[in-house]
């Protein structure tokens, strides 16, 4: 790993999320990670492993029945302790977020220009005309030629791919230091995913934006992420550099996940993820693990560091 002098931008320590109900659901049971400036960290895992919950918890967008514990430090401030007013200041301005579906995230009754200019008017108190001018500039940076035309367009006039780019432009117009992308490619076809990838790459290298990429699409992650954290049933089971995870996964779950990729011939992992309201007491992966031992059923493994990577498995002492 490149241990140069990098500033930590976001540090998440022991983040826990519960949903209180008839049964308490442990959506996240203590995850810790950090993102340095202009670094891309990706959280991968199956649906229900808590990766989206983590993103929402960082942005404090969870519904009120969720109980959040832990520390989320962004530039030294604990986001979980800020007031709602201070949080509004941070959302959009310092941390941007891209949601899954571009056609749902853009408001169909406002023009593109209006939606791009709005954050500028609200956060930076710019005049409308100047904000629109800046919006046009942002579109130019995204590679649109006829920007004066486009800012008058409405989302329904444009193709999904264009809307996707507008959405990225809207999330990044204030120049946030961190962009959270929550399943950005989900439900898009291959062509659109590769367009999206180009856009995100541009952001990463040109604007030096740090990226927290949440996705279940492993090949997409492989092409973008610097570091990858594999999540299973609400905890991180393995965290390492992108290249080492994809070339030599350590945790049996990471191995299984990679084997079920199309390139490896769709070899499935037997079984299903455990219920989050009734987690197994030992290793959470043991019911599906082919290498399990008696030891794994009784004891819960810790996340251990080996050679600059971390893995939660008894196979690696």
């Amino acid at each position: 790993m490149n241990v140069s002098i990098v500033n930590t931008l976001l540090e998440v320590k022991d983040l826990q999320v519960f949903f209180k109900g008839i049964k308490t659901i442990t959506a996240l049971s203590g995850i810790s990670f950090s993102i340095a400036e202009s670094e891309t960290l990706s959280l991968v895992g199956e649906t229900g492993c808590g990766k989206s919950v983590a993103a929402h918890a960082i942005m404090r967008l969870l519904p009120s029945e969720a109980r959040v514990k832990g520390i989320v430090k962004f530039r030294g401030k604990n986001l979980l302790e800020l007031s709602e007013k201070e949080m509004v200041e941070i959302r959009g301005k310092e941390i941007g977020i891209i949601f899954q579906n571009p056609s749902l995230a853009l408001n169909p009754v406002y023009s593109i220009g209006h939606q791009l200019a709005e954050p500028l008017c609200v956060h930076k108190k710019e005049k409308k005309e100047k904000a629109l001018f800046m919006a046009a500039g942002a579109l130019k940076n995204m590679g649109f030629a006829n920007t004066a035309e486009y800012i008058r367009y409405y989302p329904s006039w444009c193709s999904g791919g264009m809307n996707q780019r507008f959405l990225i432009a809207a999330s990044t117009i204030l120049g946030p230091a961190l962009l959270i992308a929550d399943e950005p490619g989900k439900g898009l076809d291959r062509k659109r995913v590769s367009e999206l990838e180009t856009e995100l790459k541009k952001l990463k290298f040109k604007n030096k934006t740090a990226l927290l990429l949440i996705s279940h699409d492993l090949s997409f992650v492989q092409r973008l992420a610097d570091r990858v954290a594999v999540m299973y049933a609400g905890e991180i089971v393995e965290m390492a550099d992108s290249s080492s995870i994809f070339e030599e996964p350590l945790h049996p779950y990471s191995k299984g996940l990679l084997n079920s990729l199309p390139e490896k011939g769709f070899i499935p992992i037997p079984g299903f993820s455990p219920s989050l309201s009734n987690l197994p007491s030992g290793c959470r992966f043991y019911p599906r693990c082919s290498l399990r031992k008696r030891h794994c059923i009784e004891n819960h493994p810790d996340l251990k560091k080996i050679n600059g990577r971390a893995v939660r498995c008894f196979l690696y002492p």
Binding site: E46, G187, H216, L218, S260, P268
Partner: peptide
């Protein structure tokens, strides 16, 4: 609409 690992299960 499914994850890669589940996709593999269903296809099999």
């Amino acid at each position: 609409a499914l994850d890669v690992s589940v996709q593999a299960q269903i296809l099999h």
